[in-house]
Design a protein around this nucleic acid. Structure first.
Lengths: 204, 204
DNA sequence: GCTTAAGTCACCCAATTGGGTGATTTTGTA
DNA sequence: TACAAAATCACCCAATTGGGTGACTTAAGC
């Protein structure tokens, strides 16, 4: 059973130890406990975790949100904030980070575990949540409906294929592809592949 | 001051009343208190809320997670779960709903309010989470770095513009645009606009 | 001061794409 | 069966895009 490796950034020793004990009991493994900005950066490098639990208020000139900014630039990890107050000015700074979750102090063991579980799950969902093209959804936005075959071609355009590549993968001639594309342009009211992509992207 | 209208689904009368009083004091308004699955569905219809607070364990054959499934299918509302135990099998089911938040019983007033605030904030964030192109993010994935000006052109391509449109909006000649595009293709290792779009889309 | 990278622009040619017209076959349905 | 929509393919021409080369200017770094 592989545990999820978590870096904890928390400057209050009592809470840090509490978190460490709680997490190590269950599905999680604490890679390290960092107390400062520099500490956190170093630990990220030498023992890269799979997630980061970040106290926002640190006794340091740089706080948890600064660390989160750094993580978002250099890595691609779910960030869970730990905060004493849900005050508005803090939230405004934190929102740019797009954290996977928040946990409000004081918290109990169950709050921590449930919060982490949900946050990490949401993050993984966000990953696999690459918006997909859908025929019914596109047709909701236009009068003259796109047919199924035309949709196949539209998806191929979206995937960056050339007309020749489409002809091969759809087992028709390039002329047929061109006809479909022309019809798609009329229905979407565009004049180029990229404009078509940009248009349907707005509907996903 | 417009309050956030919340539907509460909770079958234990004492807790339900407690929640109602707590919420009505502050920024929230309780549209109704539902006790069963059928009750919840009806209330959703006749008085659609802006968010749903859902007890998972109901004295009903269908539980809160079933209601959440229904809500996700028919509406687009933030769901906050309320539960007594953070047991694993239940969490596994609940996670699939992608709830906006999670509150564990027994909870105090502050847990409820903070949990709700944060959950709703997260949900609204998720909404405005239209993936954006970012220069630093793209450059994380390639060896030869895209310059700022090239990034301007890449964004214009992404937006479906033609070379001439780009030349106008960036105040340079079409030849310059062509040079930039050629360099972008080399750096991204692609041979067409659509392939470039598809490639960077995978990195957003 | 020299070098390098970025940004600007031009010209040429090839390849691809876009626009228009027409025609045949298949499929579903009234 | 007859009709309409969808899918298939061809041909032509114009417009846009892609690829290669060369050149000039500016800003930043050594």
């Amino acid at each position: 059973m592989n545990e999820i490796r978590i870096l904890v950034v928390e400057d209050e020793p009592l809470i840090a130890m509490d978190i460490e004990q709680t997490l190590n009991n269950i599905d999680f493994a604490v890679t390290a406990i960092a107390h400062t900005y520099a500490d956190a950066i170093r630990q990220l490098k030498i023992n890269t975790p799979e997630a980061v639990l970040l106290d926002i208020n640190l006794n340091d000139e740089k706080d948890g949100i600064d660390i989160a900014e750094f993580i978002n630039q250099q890595y691609h990890l779910p960030i869970v904030f730990l905060t004493s107050h849900a005050d508005k000015s803090m939230l405004d700074r934190a929102k740019k980070i797009q954290p996977a979750g928040y946990i409000v102090k004081p918290f109990e063991e169950k709050d921590l575990l449930a919060g982490l579980e949900i946050a990490l799950y949401n993050f993984s969902m966000r990953e696999s949540n690459k918006p997909m093209l859908s025929l019914t959804n596109i047709n909701k936005h236009i009068l003259s409906q796109i047919s199924e075959r035309e949709f196949d071609v539209l998806v191929a355009i979206y995937e960056g294929k050339t007309n020749m590549q489409m002809a091969e993968s759809l087992f028709v001639s390039v002329n047929t592809i061109k006809t479909h594309i022309s019809n798609i342009y009329i229905k979407l009211d565009v004049a180029s592949r990229t404009a078509a992509i940009a248009k349907v992207r707005g509907w996903m």
